[in-house]
């Protein structure tokens, strides 16, 4: 069985556990993202068919929450908090610096698929603003220099 098929089996189980209930859409999308890493259109179409929901509704829900990723994330993920506290303390400038350095925009990955740049709303760490997450590490009171240095380090490590 290919890797994708086993993912599909897991997804089917999740939907079945929820009785293919339309009202379970959020939980199912959540699980689907855990299983696949992101939600592409093919997957969303599949889910909307299984739950018998209009595709536009499913797409609307999947794009309403910034938690859901619709593009394949790269091997390494940098997530910038764009909540009010972080924004005010300069998270945007840091993200701009990363965008310039790697020539990608938020929501995009480098052509080699090594690095993805994502943004999120407040992650509840406002006291440490601005916060930027590089892979699993939360960088508190981040600066351009620290973040760029950290990214270089994780990319070098592959």
């Amino acid at each position: 069985m290919s890797k994708d098929d086993s993912r599909r089996v897991m997804l089917e189980k999740v939907m079945k556990d929820h009785g293919y209930q339309e009202s379970a859409l959020l939980e199912i999308l959540h699980k689907a993202q855990e299983i696949y890493g992101y939600l592409d259109k093919e997957l969303l179409m599949d889910i909307s068919g299984s739950l018998n929901l209009p595709p536009s509704h499913v797409f609307g829900v999947a794009t309403f929450y910034s938690f859901f990723k619709l593009k394949r994330p790269g091997q390494h993920i940098v997530t910038g908090c764009m909540g009010t506290a972080c924004y005010v303390k300069g998270a945007d400038e840091i993200m701009q610096a990363v965008e310039r350095e790697y020539n990608i925009k938020r929501g995009e990955s480098t052509p080699d698929g090594k690095l993805s740049l994502l943004v999120t709303r407040c992650i509840g760490a406002c006291a440490m603003a601005p916060t930027i997450i590089v892979d699993d590490e939360v960088i508190a009171k981040a600066t351009k220099e620290i973040v760029l240095q950290k990214i270089k380090q994780v990319l070098g490590g592959t």
């Binding site: 969303l44 909307s48 209009p54 595709p55 536009s56 797409f59 794009t63």
Partner: peptide, 28 residues
């Protein structure tokens, strides 16, 4: 038929057709 919905939210929200298809390609 619920062809239309909104994607994203707040000031970025936009009316979409099906899975954000071009209207001419909408099945519903």
């Amino acid at each position: 038929v619920h062809t239309l919905d909104l994607k994203l939210r707040g000031k970025d929200a936009q009316v979409i057709m099906d899975l954000d298809e071009h209207w001419g390609n909408s099945c519903s």
